[in-house]
Amino acid sequence: MEGVHGMSLLRVRGLRLSRGTRTILDGVDLDVQAGENVALMGLSGSGKTTILRVLAGLEQPDAGEITVPTAGMVFQFHFLFEHLTALENVCLAPIHAQKATRAQAEARAQTLLDDLGVGHRAKALPRELSGGEAQRVAIARALAVDPSLLLLDEPTASLDPARRNDLGDVLQALAASGRTLLLTSHDDDFVRDHSTRVVILANGRVVEQGDPRRVLDEAQHAETRRLLV
């Protein structure tokens, strides 16, 4: 399989999941290597978000074999804790789930926020943040517990083109610093410019994958072409 060499950080085989009579995932195979920046693409209802939710432990699959590292997740609508400041959002899990001291957790949270360009918003409440700022705080919150795989659900969905490019730079920097990323997107320009690999999903299966420019510009599969219309 293309893009697979050495030990996979994430290994998924024959993943199946249905809700009632509806089959959402129909035997998905997926591998992600450490340091990759992978984009899942597909029409609405193709199962992209469900894969992320299964990998994050939020959904129980009916069948399949998953070797999943610790995963952090950034939701499409961020879901920051509304009663806490940006800094407190980032500190919460390190302090309470990982038993870090408050001083350590705050120092590291501030560093994460600084790295993501929102250090100056540390004391702001979520409702005072712009969409782009909230997304970066959500990324910092997910990174604060040091997950080996970062999942991002539709990170480009609510960003204007300039912000979308900024986000791409941020994600590439994360990948460059050794993070492994798996995201879902509808935005083929973004995926072309910023992902190392694209995986095309249709009807709960992987239909095509590989280098974004090759897959998206010389689409082999009918489902991929439908995606680009």
Binding site: L58, G72, F79, L80, A93, A144
Partner: peptide, 11 residues
């Protein structure tokens, strides 16, 4: 979503 976020964070 906030509860799910908290769960993924290990709370």
């Amino acid at each position: 979503g906030q509860l799910e976020a908290a769960r993924i964070l290990g709370l």
